[in-house]
Design a protein around this nucleic acid. Structure first.
Lengths: 223, 223
DNA sequence: AAATTGATTTAGGTTTGTCTAAATAATTAT
DNA sequence: ATAATTATTTAGACAAACCTAAATCAATTT
């Protein structure tokens, strides 16, 4: 288990996240998420395939090998632990930690990660509600989570997680005072643009776009 | 105030540490501390001179410019704050934090550094007894420190700082149970090899080499 | 089935930070 | 003062990770 460059780690992480959406990951998708040109992606995935971390086939995109997935999960583990540290211990807001964690996740010391984990009391979720893989890469998803867009009307639910870390998205969340743990209900859905009217107890109702509602994960609760 | 590459930061740091010893810093000295070939040093110091961080003159070595010194101190500040964090909060031993801090010192967020500083309660010294520059690069040296080798016999003193982070050096310190804050006296000096016999209260006396005694900084105390 | 469009790959180039080998300057010893 | 030694610089090369432009493959439309 040697160490990889920052770039290599970012490629593995990107493939991991894109794979979640389904089948093989295409060059162009990687180009978009990594902000690089498709030609550069081809170079790099070939290199990572030679190292046994990806399985690449011309024109057919890539897949993580078991070893590649293990590496990706290790980076994601570090990212989420550092985010937890920044919020829990240093008092950052949850919408300003992603960029910093993008740097911290590449610090290599294994011992550091384990000590950090212990210092944080072995958290299961990061500040955005995403699960933190354990040291063996095991990751526990909450099966009960659904995107807000799929929540039936008048079914109370708790906001558990958000599926994007983009600054624009988090800004809008904050504008609407949506934080993890808040309880809400869908009051109305507008077929025209799929937008939803949302009610949070003791606040005025407001609407969110379909795009927003897609990225907010909630857990329905008993009535 | 733009950001610099990891390599550039390491060059500035190396020049800063070597400058402490006296006048201009020579290519070969940098080659040694940075583990690079002299030819590579020449290239890089030329580049840093063009950026206004170093003042380089052919065959005459380099000096930090005010801007270069400011950058170097910023990196050193981060290094020492992270070392403090690793020891104080994560429970590392002082002899295992240097390598990790070499990576952490290059994390760029200014806000992170200030929050970390506050979290640690604005420490003045790092775990090795070295002063931590403040956010303006101001650094307070304890004028009363002398190398153990210069301590007169039978003059009690407190170990305040060590002038090397090498693993071999720290291992030997540990072997002799020398930690920061410990009180000791020189009992005898052997002219043959300049080695010293040291006594620490309630422990058997032991000897240290001149090389060791050079790197241990102590503060004499009243009798 | 041919043509157009879009995705992907290839070929060749750039920058950063390193290297080796050869040339030159500075220093030290004779 | 000259020779030998050591330090430094120059020149040319290389790997990593990116780029642009051109070529090729795949998918879709007509």
């Amino acid at each position: 288990m040697k160490k990889h460059s920052v770039s290599e780690e970012n490629y593995l992480k990107a493939v991991y996240h894109l794979e979640a959406a389904g089948e093989r990951v295409l060059t162009n998708d990687l180009a978009r998420t990594l902000s690089a040109k498709p030609a550069s992606i081809t170079d790099m995935v070939q290199k990572l395939t030679e190292k046994g971390l990806l399985d690449y086939q011309k024109y057919q995109g890539v897949q993580l090998t078991p070893e590649g997935r293990k590496q990706a999960l290790s980076v994601i583990r570090k990212h989420r632990l550092w985010e937890s540290f920044l919020v829990e211990k240093l008092g950052f807001n949850w919408d300003e930690v992603h960029e910093i964690a993008e740097e911290l996740e590449h610090i290599s010391s294994k011992k550091l990660v384990e000590k950090l984990d212990a210092f944080l009391n072995f958290p299961k979720l990061d500040p955005h509600g995403d699960p933190i893989p354990d040291k063996n890469g095991k990751i526990v998803y909450d099966q009960a989570l659904v995107p807000l867009i799929e929540l039936p009307a008048n079914q109370p639910a708790i906001v558990m997680s958000v599926a994007s870390q983009s600054a624009d998205f988090l800004e809008l969340l904050r504008f609407n005072n949506i934080v993890l743990g808040v309880k809400l209900e869908v009051k109305k859905r507008f077929d025209f643009d799929q937008s939803l009217q949302i009610k949070i107890p003791s606040r005025a109702a407001f609407t969110v776009s379909a795009q927003m509602a897609q990225s907010i994960k909630v857990k329905p609760v008993e009535i």
